[in-house]
Amino acid sequence: MTPAGNEYELKRVREFLPLDQLLALAEKNLDETLSWAASLPLYKTPKLKRGNHYALESLRQLPFLSRQDLIEIGTRSVSGKSRVRRVQLWGSRQIQQGAQFWYPRGLKDITRFNELAGRLASVSEIKPRDVILVLSQAGHGATNALPYALADALKIASIPAQIIPANMTIDVHVKKWADFLIANPPSVIIAEPKDALGLAGILRGITQQPLMPELRFILLYGMRSAGESGQVEQIYRVPVRRSVGFDGLDVFGLECTHRQGVHLWLDTGLYELIADEELLKESSDLKDVPKSSWLWETERGVTGELVVTSFSELLPLIRFRTGLKVEFAGVGDCPCGRSHPRIKLL
């Protein structure tokens, strides 16, 4: 893939870097991330010191971060103003009833997110005249900013495609605008499965015509089970591509047109896998700390829990246990030519 010279094409190069170069890049990012993390009260451990040099392997000597920790991070990250670098934006996500996870985002985080939106356009092969419906989630997380970041990315890439940003949370309003999707049918939908299914139900109430005849594919995020994508595929009768994203991590992975697993971007984070047998040991012995392996060094077909480390500028999440059950699908052998490792969501 030869860069065409514009900003968009130059950034695309990182999608196709060989694995060793990606790992070198990841190590550099990790070094910066851990040096910064050493100053955060959240990561007070003798293993982290400012000014130290951190190689890839040093990451796996650090403790895991759990979902419960995220709830506490929401509070601790905002105490001690001097410890928080320049915050541009606070994102939020309800982790459980009454527990809100607030995460600060800096200029670099926002810039990286915008670049990832551009990558979404590239990986999904967005075409001129595509009409992209983006259904955002409730709250104010990454999906709320996505349509606008994507619009900006498409502008930079000079791709004349349109975005329809929408949100299904206020039922009263959805009924008033939904019929526009019949007049201006989307060719791409980006949505959570429940919203994609909810929208189909509303449109069925308006028209007997086939749903969105121009639709090429649906990109799903926030899936809770593998079955959900099957349901969406059945109703809309187009291929479904999957993605994984984690609010607060500024990391998200995407399935390409070949649909051989979700590519996890090594230039935005590092990925480990806790294999099933380790999880089993942990469940039978609560004191056991499970061992993980680098995702790209795992044997294809191995299943387990995905662990992510983000290179976020303000609040990096280090060794975050996502709770996602995945299968390692390979690295460097996707027909699309992208070298980043792939997973299947289970």
Partner: peptide, 21 residues
């Protein structure tokens, strides 16, 4: 507004929430 501020490198910290939050 957020993108404009970010693009210009202006300092402005924003907590943006929906009406239900």
């Amino acid at each position: 507004a957020m993108m404009t501020h970010t693009g210009l490198g202006l300092e402005r910290e924003v907590i943006s929430v929906g009406l239900s939050d």
